[in-house]
Structures are given as C-alpha cells and as structure tokens.
C-alpha cells in the first residue's frame, strides 16, 4: 500500500472514528513523523530480550554495578551490546564478568595461553606521544584551546602510565 502523501510504502496505519465516521490514514514513516504520529519501529528480538533481561536483573545488580572509571561504560550498556568499553572494564566488572565468562568458556576463567613477549614496550607509546604533540601544535596554532587542553591531559596520562610501568617490578 502506498503512503497517502507520497510514493513510499505505507507502514503506519491509523484508524480513528469521529462522529461515527471511520477515518483511515496510511502513511510512510517519514510522513507519519511529520504529522506527529509516534512511530515505534519493531525491535529486533535480541534487543527485546536484552531489555527484558535488563529490567529483571537491574534491581539485583544495582548494588554491585558501577560504571567503569576508565571509560564510563556501565554494565547495562555492556549487556545491551555484548561489548566492553576498554581493557579496564575487565577489572571494573570482574565479579559480574567472571560468572559470565565461565559460562561461555567451559567453566574456565584463567588464561593459560601465550603471553606478550617482552619486546620493546614503548614503540606504540612513542608514536602516540609524537602524534599527540603534533596535534597539540596544530590545535594551538588554530586557537582550539579546549582541544589543546584535552591533548595536554592525554599526554600527561600517558607519561604517568609509562612511569608507573617502569616502577612496576613484576
């Protein structure tokens, strides 16, 4: 069925009865939105499921769940996408993740495979610092001071973590 207003396929159908007279409207999504009809697109089943799971589990988890201080991801966000925000999320959500990981990994939750070789640890860090410095110069030159301040913070964080790594004896 075509939309009443344009050539698109009508996906929103409204039937109202006014003074005993039936009025039908058949609109495409855009035209419906234009006329102020609320459109609830059908949700994929996994979204529905995760919403359902979240609503039932939110209460019990609300005490333990916090956001990851490193990237700001919440456990609810993770549940929805199945993807974590950063490496630190594994620490931030360790308790919740461990049981989930055990279920997915035949009951195992400890790594026994390859470990990173002890190669030069700072190759990519140097690159990052060099590219950040360049970006900082550009930001200052174009008077984007807010961005410049952000980059300075990033540079500070990186050099601090480098120091921490050096102190780290294990």
């Amino acid at each position: 069925m075509k939309c009443d207003n344009c050539d698109n396929e009508a996906t929103v159908h409204e039937v109202t009865v006014r003074k005993g007279k039936k009025i039908e409207k058949h609109l495409c999504e855009q035209c419906a939105a234009g006329e102020g009809l609320s459109v609830q697109a059908s949700l994929p089943i996994n979204t529905l499921l995760s919403k359902f799971m979240m609503s039932t589990q939110l209460e019990e988890e609300s005490e333990t769940v916090d956001h990851c201080p490193e990237c700001g991801m919440t456990f609810a966000e993770f549940r929805q996408s199945g993807l974590l925000g950063c490496a630190a999320c594994y620490d931030s959500f360790e308790d919740q993740l461990t049981s989930l990981i055990e279920r997915a990994q035949e009951g195992r939750s400890r790594h026994v495979g390859r470990t990173p070789a002890s190669g030069p640890k700072c190759l990519d860090r140097e690159n990052i610092i060099a590219s950040l410095r360049q970006e900082l110069d550009e930001a200052v030159a174009s008077e984007r001071y807010e961005r410049a301040a952000q980059i300075r913070d990033e540079l500070r964080t990186i050099s601090e973590s480098a120091d921490a790594d050096d102190d780290d004896g294990d």
């Binding site: 490193e70 950063c86 490496a87």
Partner: peptide, 8 residues
C-alpha cells in the same frame, strides 16, 4: 593497550 575498545 593505550586505547579504549572501539565502543568507547
């Protein structure tokens, strides 16, 4: 190591 995962 130095970057967040792609979601963030």
């Amino acid at each position: 190591e130095s970057f967040p995962f792609l979601t963030k």
